[in-house]
């Protein structure tokens, strides 16, 4: 059996990659994909610990998280379509109206 530290390290790596992408990329779709990476890094962690502890609760929790993430993606993509219609691109640095 693979020791949990490997999973934790892998998950930390994926999370860091996702965070880097969120902070550096301009394309909203890419940022959304990076967010998915971060989310799934967390899911991986939960599944790993669940397997290690022999508790199935963690695995069920992840299933729920996946379903909700799918719904969230639908909402996010809907917003992107509106942004695209308004600005002709999905560059997240362009919409600046939502401020003071």
């Amino acid at each position: 059996m693979v020791p949990p530290s490997y999973y934790v390290l892998l998950s930390a790596l994926i999370f860091a990659i996702g965070l880097y992408g969120v902070l550096t990329r301009r394309n909203a779709v890419v940022i959304l994909m990076c967010v998915e990476l971060m989310l799934n890094a967390a899911n991986l962690n939960i599944v790993a610990f669940a397997a290690y502890l022999g508790d199935v609760t963690g695995q069920i929790l992840v299933l729920f998280a996946l379903a909700i993430a799918a719904a969230e993606v639908a909402v996010g993509l809907g917003i992107f379509i509106l942004v695209y219609r308004e600005y002709g691109t999905v560059d997240v640095t362009l919409p600046r109206g939502m401020r003071w």
Partner: peptide
């Protein structure tokens, strides 16, 4: 309120 730049990044 200047903190609220409106830029999501």
């Amino acid at each position: 309120r200047r903190v609220q730049t409106g830029v999501v990044r």
